[in-house]
Amino acid sequence: MSSWHEFIFMGKHGAYVWSSYLMSLVVLLGLFIGFRMMLKSLKRQVQAEASAPESQKQKARKLKVSQAD
């Protein structure tokens, strides 16, 4: 039992260590969920554009690139 107690409290640094792990996990989960939502949104946009009639499709725009003098 003593070894678990020492592991959890880590010599009075347990609160800092475990809260750091928790915050890292929250940030990583937030990034994962955010990117999944963005990917689903982009997929829906691409599918909607692909299934739209030709008259409603937007033409590809050419980017104007200025050259340095």
Score class of each variant (00 low, 15 high):
Leu63Asn: 01
Pro53Leu: 10
Ala60Gln: 11
Tyr21Glu: 09
Ala15Phe: 05
Ala48His: 13
Leu29Ser: 12
Ala68Lys: 04
Ser19Ala: 13
Arg44Cys: 00
Arg36Glu: 08
Trp4Thr: 12
Lys57Tyr: 06
Gln67Tyr: 02
Lys43Ile: 14
Gln67Asp: 07
Phe9Pro: 00
Ser41Pro: 00
Leu29Phe: 09
His13Trp: 07
Lys62Ile: 03
Gln47Ser: 09
Ser41Asn: 06
Tyr16Cys: 05
Gln67Ser: 09
Glu54Cys: 06
Val65Asp: 01
Gln56Lys: 07
Val65Pro: 00
Lys40Ser: 15
Trp4Gly: 06
Ser24Pro: 02
Trp18Asp: 10
Gln58Val: 11
Glu49Asp: 11
Ala15Gln: 10
Ser66Ile: 04
Arg61Asn: 10
Trp4Pro: 08
Asp69Ile: 06
Gly34Leu: 10
Lys57Leu: 01
Ala52Pro: 05
Ala50Glu: 13
Asp69His: 06
Tyr21Met: 14
Ser2Gln: 04
Met10Lys: 12
Arg44Leu: 01
Asp69Val: 14
Ser24Phe: 05
Ser20Trp: 03
Lys40Tyr: 09
Ala68Glu: 00
Glu49Ala: 14
Leu42Pro: 02
Leu28Thr: 12
Phe9Asp: 03
Lys57Trp: 01
Phe32Ile: 07
Arg44Ala: 03
Leu28Asn: 04
Ala15His: 02
Gly11Tyr: 07
Met23Ala: 13
Glu49Thr: 13
Ile8Trp: 14
Tyr21Ile: 14
Glu6Thr: 08
Leu25Arg: 08
Gly34Tyr: 13
Tyr21Thr: 06
Ala68Val: 07
Ser55Glu: 15
Val27Cys: 11
Lys64Ser: 04
His13Cys: 09
Ser51Cys: 11
Leu31Asp: 11
Leu29Arg: 00
Gln58Trp: 10
Gln47Phe: 08
Ala60Phe: 09
Ser3Tyr: 03
Val46His: 15
His5Phe: 09
Val65Thr: 06
Val26Trp: 04
Val46Asp: 11
Val17Arg: 06
Trp18Met: 04
Lys64Thr: 02
Ser55Met: 09
Gln45Thr: 06
Met37Ser: 05
Gly14Leu: 05
Lys40Met: 14
Trp18Arg: 13
Arg36Ile: 06
Val17Thr: 08
Ala60Arg: 12
Pro53Met: 00
Val65Asn: 04
Phe9Met: 12
Glu6Tyr: 11
Ile33His: 01
Ala52Phe: 10
Glu54Met: 03
Val26Ile: 15
Ala50Pro: 00
Tyr21His: 01
Ser51Ile: 15
Phe32Ala: 05
Tyr16Leu: 14
Ser2Met: 01
Ser19Leu: 13
Val27Tyr: 02
Pro53Thr: 00
Gln56Ser: 00
Met38Tyr: 10
Ala60Val: 08
Phe32Trp: 09
Trp4Ile: 08
